[in-house]
Design a protein around this nucleic acid. Structure first.
Lengths: 207, 207
DNA sequence: GTCTATACAGTGATAGAC
DNA sequence: GTCTATCACTGTATAGAC
């Protein structure tokens, strides 16, 4: 990153990039290995040389986005110039971005779709993405409590109020993609603002 | 209802009841017409006599639960003995029940799954279920505002905070069904309580 | 309304040559 | 690594007899 060197995209990476787009556009079941192969301009046999099966391909697509998405949150945690309130505000902004705009966030409904057939996908998503995400945010909260800026709160209850609206907004935007007035019904910015204000009102210690 | 007469279940109703269970258990794509037919102990040809295709069958299953689910909310609205706060508390309870326990509520992730292939399913779900649901709740809020018990609130922002956590909890419970510690991770009752308290704290007019 | 029988497109996946 | 060719199978859906 930033050293002027851009690694050539491997075939495997190209397949993942292309198939992620197809999965997001059409869902898991409607994205066949034939379509992926055709979109990559290779044959199915070649595709199967790179991935042992459709499930492995999908898991690779999901897993691929974990680290970069979490890095933004980590950077925020390590920024010592921020007070707890500003840091939480920024964190919520990043969470909206991660969940609604990023590929891994938008994949959540797909993971729900395949979770019965491949429970390990759900396991991985929960332990390698959701878990770390909550850990980072929780440390920010604990920091604010230590500094007497935030009231002590129950962890699960707080996350219920924090992640609930974000995930639902993301799901709604995916499931009502076909609506031409999507932005009117589910606008990100204003909902993010009011959500942030409400959370801060609840958590701030105002004696 | 309650008149001692129970209408015989028609074949069509039986098919809908059975296939709803299969859709909820295995998802839309993994529920084939063959499996539905087998579960109903009829042949595929007979199944196609009652429903012109898999999409029509699915739409029928989704639509079927709308009215009974909304009726609980309507009953609450018409109960004149309740003050706005108690009514809202009860309404939230009903919404948790509708979204997490009822068949139509649990179908939401499936609707997301098929929404691209059948946008009319998403349309119907939004206009015949989500819409009326929000209208009823909104009238309860407006009533409380009129009585000066609630502060005026922005509609979209309030629904973001009200429905967001409920829908996400429902989605999480569906997508992590395979977890043996599901109830520990996603317990309905305590989250409902803290969610309700938070909403009331935000909306009550305490000068 | 239910059946037997069938059409036929598409699926995930593999064998083996180059 | 990529190809051609092919596998066994399941999918939705229909025709026509009873």
């Amino acid at each position: 990153m930033g050293n002027g060197f851009v690694a050539a995209e491997t075939r495997r990476e190209e397949i993942m990039r292309v198939s992620t787009g197809l999965f997001l556009e059409n869902g898991f079941a409607a994205t066949s290995m034939s379509k992926v192969a055709a979109a990559c301009k290779i044959t199915k046999a070649s595709l199967y040389h790179h991935f042992t099966g459709k499930d492995e391909l999908f898991i690779a697509c999901v897993t691929h986005g974990y680290t970069p998405a979490l890095d933004d949150l980590r950077a925020l945690e390590n920024d010592q110039s921020l007070d707890p309130v500003t840091r939480l505000r920024e964190a919520i902004s990043v969470l909206y971005e991660m969940t609604i705009k990023s590929e891994v966030g938008r994949m959540s409904p797909l993971i729900a779709e395949v979770s019965r057939a491949f429970p390990n996908v759900a396991r991985s998503f929960h332990s390698d993405y959701i878990g770390p995400q909550q850990e980072i945010v929780w440390r920010m909260i604990a920091d604010g409590v230590d500094q007497k800026v935030f009231q002590p709160v129950d962890r699960k209850s707080f996350f219920h109020l924090l992640f609930g609206p974000i995930v639902t907004l993301s799901l709604s935007r995916e499931m009502f993609t076909s609506f031409e007035d999507l932005e009117d019904h589910f606008p990100v910015e204003p909902l993010k603002q009011s959500h942030t204000d409400a959370l801060l009102k609840l958590i701030r210690s105002c004696a």
